[in-house]
Nucleic acid binder design. Structure first.
Lengths: 191, 191
DNA sequence: GTTTTAAGTGAATAATAATTCATTTAATTT
DNA sequence: AAATTAAATGAATTATTATTCACTTAAAAC
């Protein structure tokens, strides 16, 4: 028997991300996705039951991916600022490199497809970061501000960097990232 | 002759914003928009040539709206921080109150519809703010950081506040806004 | 109050897009 | 190397959605 070509699933995901970036979830058809992924329309339906489950599967994958790597190279023994900077850099680099994925999540968030389970998973991504912030507050290293809003401040800035790198075709050099981190840090550090 | 009911255009815009918030640009049909706006499908086509021009018209309107009010109650005689805070508050309040409009712009940004003219108009919105930042840098009140990135820092934080207010149904009290402004200010102020 | 004109209606039609399926292709097994 | 099995194909079908249009309604002109 002829085995399933597992590369195809990846090819479909990649095609979706490219097309959604270009035209939005509103603007793509299964035929286009198949063409972009270099396969026949019918083949799509061997790997995915229908459009809805394709969107759901990719959303899930992107959400998973976003969670992994958050604490990469993080060392709990480091002082708070060092650890926080590590994580900040991890997030910003991920958001820049996988901007299409953030975008896709964002779009599927506002679609007839997405369910509450995925919404919750998205929020849970940041639980470890909230714990870290608590440590910083306990040590009086950072301001005593509700983590919900402090996280908004941190993540908002990061998101906008990724947006601008992608929309305005800017390069975010190490220099630029460090400058941006400095603004973030000065914003949250205890006074 | 029977005159056009100009309220209908507004009703259609409102319906679009409500539905796009719920289901995304991908998930709405002209029939649904008409139903939500309490009119027959055919009536939509009296006011808008087709779906594309409806999306374009609403995007344009939202972009215009976002620009107005940025400098409301701003007094150039005030010291830099006072003036900046005024504008920061204007933006954050607008983004919260008209979150559906930001969302719609965002979605139409990634659609087969949007043109470069609108993209440019969006960017130009912030030109006056960039000028203001320059003043702050000249006076050495704020850090000497490229306005492009400083604006990313400022606007990113604001956007995320608006998102969280809307998605997590949080109330952004004056207290919360002031705390958030403080983080932003500490981030950009000269050290 | 009759005529005229354009708005408003919603079922009918046209266009587009999702999904299926008869057929072909290519691994694997015997 | 023939038989078997499931993947792959893409045209045909079905479903959905945009758009039109013959008709109705209501305001304005006369």
């Amino acid at each position: 028997m002829k085995p399933k070509d597992q590369n195809k699933v990846e090819a479909v995901y990649k095609a979706m991300l490219v097309l959604v970036r270009q035209r939005g979830l509103a603007g793509i058809t299964m035929a286009e996705v198949a063409r972009e992924a270099k396969m026949a329309t019918g083949t799509l339906y061997i790997y995915f039951k229908n459009k809805e489950s394709l969107v759901a599967a990719l959303t899930d994958k992107c959400v998973q991916h976003m969670a992994g790597g958050l604490f990469k190279d993080y060392n709990a023994d480091n002082d708070f600022k060092t650890g926080f900077q590590k994580i900040w850099m991890n997030i910003v680099r991920h958001r820049i490199a996988f901007f299409n994925e953030s975008l896709f999540i964002e779009q599927s968030f506002h679609s007839p497809f997405l369910n509450d389970e995925i919404r919750l998973a998205l929020k849970k991504n940041f639980d470890p970061l909230i714990l870290l912030l608590q440590r910083g507050k306990d040590e009086k290293t950072i301001k005593d501000i509700d983590s919900f809003w402090m996280l908004a401040f941190i993540i908002g800035g990061i998101n906008e960097i990724a947006r601008r790198v992608n929309y305005f075709n800017k390069k975010a050099s190490q220099q630029v990232l460090e400058t941006n981190f400095q603004m973030c840090w000065d914003g949250i550090k205890a006074t």
